[in-house]
Structure formats: structure tokens, C-alpha cells
Nucleic acid binder design. Structure first.
Lengths: 244, 244
DNA sequence: ATTACTATTTCCCGAGTAA
DNA sequence: TTTACTCGGGAAATAGTAA
């Protein structure tokens, strides 16, 4: 049930209270209450941590004081550094799929000034009129597609003319086959299901890369750690009381 | 012996390998080898982690793939954030002691141009000619004195004239009784033992604060987290093989 | 109050093994 | 090859209690 070990929780408890420079007054009953364990276990824990050199205890009169040692703090910091390496590193998201020929609508939409102008402004390139359709292969790729749709930061707004309305889309920059700068387009009203990706770029990708239907391609997206983890790891909502 | 729990180690193992966006191929024998435990325990671990919703497993053919769930990553991130709060926060070091009258040498030394000039340059104030001597009270304060001596960033160099040599010192800025900007001086060749602090400041502190011998005073030093933890937590040296 | 011993129970680990 | 079951032994947690 509990992810952290008792030892870790004690060291974190102490470190949070600056107990590496200021000895902390502490009793085994209060520690046991904090940890949700028995007084006996709290006692044993402190004895063990002391034996392992992670903490120091000193009894003054009838109150005892606890302090983390350099060794204890180092251990905790090593855990911190390994977690930091995980959570402060850009996240690489990879999608794999095969090229296929769609309905050819992409070309029409992208050449509409209502879209073309936004694409040029927000993505920084004049898109070749046409989308490269990719049918995703693995479950991971499909799940990552959902993730990217959530994270896509570029909004392409819908608009309307005399005849009809044109839906909006979201986009995110990516790299195709480790070389080509492209953007993945998440179209609001699409005729494709979510195992399909639509990619746009400045050059005619099929031509430039010699891609044919069925060819395997790889898309890579790099997300800054802050963006990724703040979106992906939602702190659990406080328990909702059932409606009566 | 081991600070982290098995569950934590598995989640870190997976997170380090990007197994939140890319399912990781993994067998129980290889996990057990990595953890230093049995194959049976590795199997049980994965079953439990899955039951708790921290990981997802999928068997494709005869190979199984493991992925951290959002919940699992959130849990790990919560641990990270609580450690980050510890290791990315300025460290307050407090020393308590009582004022006492020393040998009066401080006044002489501080007024020597060889010292006075350096103090003004490096500390940014003209020191009142005299030191406030503080006899430290608690064991923590004495230990913190050693710590500060190690961390003191300002070097006051020794020098010599025709008659004799004058030793060097280190200094660090501090706050006395929450109000006065002062500096603690760690003199190389001092006649005091290490339960004594010498403090200098621009004003005549005894006068300004109405301090008499025996009065309790508090010194506070704020250390940036990087400085503190990089000095205080030395990564343990690799085990040295015994000489044969 | 405390802390920490001993006894009992509970839980975890790994050997053996089936699928 | 895998994974994961049962089961026996041992470690860890709690209860009871002394100091």
C-alpha cells in the first residue's frame, strides 16, 4: 500500500524539519502516530537507523533529540538526484506507423487561406498542400497519440465562410524519421479514428523521403519536463463524497 | 540496509527507461537479478504493483511488456516533490550563545590596515574595531560552527610586516538576533577553542543592542541549497579493496 | 511520561514446481 | 524458456510489560 519504506519516511520527516542542523525533539509515540505504526516499531526503527549511521540520538534529561547524519542526508540526496534525473529531463515521445493514402481532403483544406495563414504564422512554415497519413502500429503509439493531443500547444482556429463552417485543430511540432521537421495535426472533426495521424510539413514528404504506402515511419516529439509531468501526473483529487 | 522499498525501485527503474510512454520488455528473472531478489519475489512485486494500479502489463506472444501508469508516475513525482522541497530550499543555520568579554585583542587586529582593508572590500562595511565574543551553548551550535567554518566563503588573507606575521581568517555573513547584519570570523590562529564565535559588524553591537556579558544571542546564517548540500553530503567513496 | 525488552502473530521471502 | 502457484521458514510488526 505504502510506496516509501519506513526508513525513508523517517529521514524525510527529519529533513523536512531541518534536523540536519537542529536536533529535533522526538518521542517514539509521536513518531509511531505519524508513521501509522506501533510505538514498538518506531522504537526499533530509530535503533536501526542509528545502528546504520543514518541518524544520531542524544538524551538530555528525559527528552531525546534526533538528528540526521551526513550519511543519512547523503542517502536521501542520492534518491533525490535519481528522481531529479527522471523528472527534469525532456520527455521523448515516439510514435510508429505506416504511411497510407487517405481521402485526399488534406490538400484541399490546407490550401484554404483560413487555415494556410494560421499554419504559416503559428508553425513557421508554408505547409505543402497535403497531409501525410500515418496508421499507428502499436498500442503505445496510439496511447501516445492521445497524450500528444492533450499536450499539443498550437491552436488552429475554425472559421466560416458563406457556404459552411470549418472546424478547428491542434498541432504540435515533431521530427519525422529523425530528420524532417514536421507538425502533427489533431483535427477536431476528422473522418479518421484515433489510430491515425495526420502530418504536415514544408516539403512534399513522400517525394523528399521516397515514401510509399506501407512504409514504416517514426515520429519523435520532445516535451519539456515541466509541461509533460504537470499535465501527465495529476495530483489525485480529494475523495468525492457520494451523492445521497 | 536498503533505504528504498522494492516497489519504489521498480518504479524508478521503469521511469528511468521512459516506461511511461514506451512499454518496456521485461522478464521476472531479469528484474529479480536487478533487484537482487528471487524470481518469485519479482513476480509477486509486479502482480502487486499492477493490482495497486501503479503499472500495467501486457503479454504479446511470449514476451511481456510493462508500463508505468499515470498513477504510478504521480506517486513517484510526489516523492520527488517532497525531496525537492528539502534539497532546493535555502538552509537556515542557527547558533545560540552568550556574550562574553574576551582578551580585547580583536580591536587591535581589526584596526590594522592589513585586515581592515580586506574586511571593507570583501564584506562591504567598515568594521567597528572590536569583536563580539559569543560562547556557544548547545552541542548543535558547536557542530554548526564547524559546518560554517567549512562553508565560509570569504577569505581574509594573512600578511606580514617588519615585526611579525599575521594569520588569515575566513568569514561568513550572518544576522544577529534577527536584525543586525554581521559577519562571523573564523580566525586561523585563535586563542579560543571551537565553542567560541567572534562576530564583527559595522556598529558597536554591545552599544546598539544593549548587550552585556551573559546575554543570550542568536546568529542566523542562510546558505543556498546548492552550496550546502554539495558540501555537506559527500558521495561515499567507492569501496576500497583491502591491501593484501 | 517515556524507551525498549520478550513473546506472539503476521507477513514476507524463496524453494519447489506446475503450466 | 517464461510466470506464478503453494508452502515452510524466517523476518518483521505488534502486544504485553518492565524499567
Amino acid at each position: 500500500m505504502q510506496l516509501l519504506s519506513f526508513k525513508e519516511r523517517v529521514l524525510i520527516f527529519l529533513a523536512e524539519r531541518d534536523a540536519f542542523t537542529n536536533s529535533l525533539k522526538m518521542t517514539t509515540p509521536m513518531l509511531s502516530k505519524y508513521l501509522g505504526t506501533s510505538q514498538q516499531s518506531a522504537s526499533r526503527l530509530l535503533i536501526q537507523l542509528e545502528k546504520e549511521g543514518f541518524i544520531e540520538r542524544r538524551i538530555v534529561g528525559r527528552t531525546s533529540y534526533v538528528k540526521i547524519t551526513e550519511k543519512g542526508l547523503s542517502q536521501l540526496r542520492e534518491v533525490y538526484l535519481s528522481l531529479k534525473a527522471i523528472f527534469e529531463r525532456p520527455v521523448n515521445i515516439t510514435l510508429e506507423g505506416r504511411v497510407f493514402t487517405g481521402l485526399g481532403e488534406g490538400a484541399y483544406y490546407i490550401s484554404l487561406p483560413g487555415y494556410a495563414k494560421q499554419i504559416e504564422e503559428k508553425l513557421g512554415f508554408r505547409a505543402y498542400p497535403g497531409t501525410l497519413n500515418i496508421s499507428l502500429l502499436s498500442r503505445d503509439s496510439i496511447e501516445n497519440r492521445h497524450l500528444l493531443q492533450r499536450l499539443a500547444p498550437i491552436e488552429i482556429h475554425g472559421f466560416r465562410d458563406e457556404k459552411r463552417t470549418y472546424g478547428g485543430a491542434k498541432a504540435i511540432k515533431a521530427v519525422l524519421n529523425d530528420t524532417e521537421d514536421v507538425a502533427i495535426l489533431f483535427v477536431e472533426r476528422t473522418q479518421y479514428d484515433n489510430s491515425v495521424l495526420e502530418v504536415i510539413a514544408e516539403p512534399y514528404l513522400r517525394g523528399k523521403l521516397g515514401l510509399k504506402d506501407g512504409d514504416k515511419v517514426k515520429l519523435t516529439v520532445v516535451i519539456p519536463p515541466s509541461t509533460f509531468f504537470e499535465n501527465f501526473t495529476k495530483t489525485k483529487a480529494p475523495a468525492q463524497p457520494p451523492v445521497t
